[in-house]
């Protein structure tokens, strides 16, 4: 516990340091700029579709966010509890903050268990040959999910 908290503190300091040096990350084809804990511009300038985003967060082969997070999606029986509830996530986070977290959580918390959905595959260890040189989600998928999450402003169920 305490070692972990210590590691967290040290990492947070390193991360903060990185934030202020405005590093540019490169993932396959599409580049994005991290400023502070934000990515301000939509990946690849793409526009998100919240309806598809809602499907992606449920889909076990895509976002599968439900495996760790609570979301206002009553038709799924089981919601994970590993991460914080995302039920009113856009009350606490802005669009650009959400974008960085969905793109690559490890740039916010290097020890995170949350997968880097658009993190460069060269940073992974022993990736299966089926998934070589790919990211878990595409830039369009990320934008769809971001556009869905920013609609989660209240604790009410959101349907489209």
């Amino acid at each position: 516990m305490f070692v972990r908290i210590n590691i967290l503190v040290v990492h947070s300091l390193i991360v903060l340091f990185c934030f202020y040096s405005n590093n540019i990350s490169a993932s396959p084809e599409i580049k994005y700029i991290v400023e502070g804990d934000n990515i301000f511009n939509p990946l690849g300038g793409l526009e998100g579709d919240p309806r598809n985003g809602r499907e992606l967060v449920r889909n076990k082969n895509k976002g599968n966010c439900l495996s760790c997070h609570h979301l206002p999606i009553p038709e799924d029986d089981f919601h994970g509890t590993i991460g914080p509830s995302l039920i009113a996530v856009s009350q606490r986070l802005t669009e650009s903050q959400i974008r960085l977290r969905v793109t690559d959580m490890k740039q916010v918390n290097p020890n995170s268990i949350m997968p880097g959905f658009f993190r460069g595959p060269e940073k992974m260890n022993r990736i299966s040959s089926i998934y070589e040189n790919t990211t878990i989600l595409s830039a369009q998928d990320i934008e769809d999910i971001v556009s869905y999450l920013i609609t989660l402003k209240t604790i009410q169920t959101k349907t489209f």
């Binding site: 972990r4 439900l66 495996s67 760790c68 029986d77 089981f78 919601h79 994970g80 509890t81 590993i82 490890k106 268990i113 997968p115 880097g116 993190r119 595959p121 940073k123 992974m124 260890n125 022993r126 990736i127 299966s128 998934y131 790919t134 878990i136």
Partner: peptide, 25 residues
């Protein structure tokens, strides 16, 4: 304690840190 795969996780994360939590069902 080594991270593996595209999910980039290690055994300890699920079986030490988040023991007792739900992974979906």
């Amino acid at each position: 304690f080594t991270r593996f795969g595209q999910m980039d996780m290690n055994c300890s994360q699920c079986h030490d840190i988040y023991t007792g939590q739900m992974l979906r069902g």
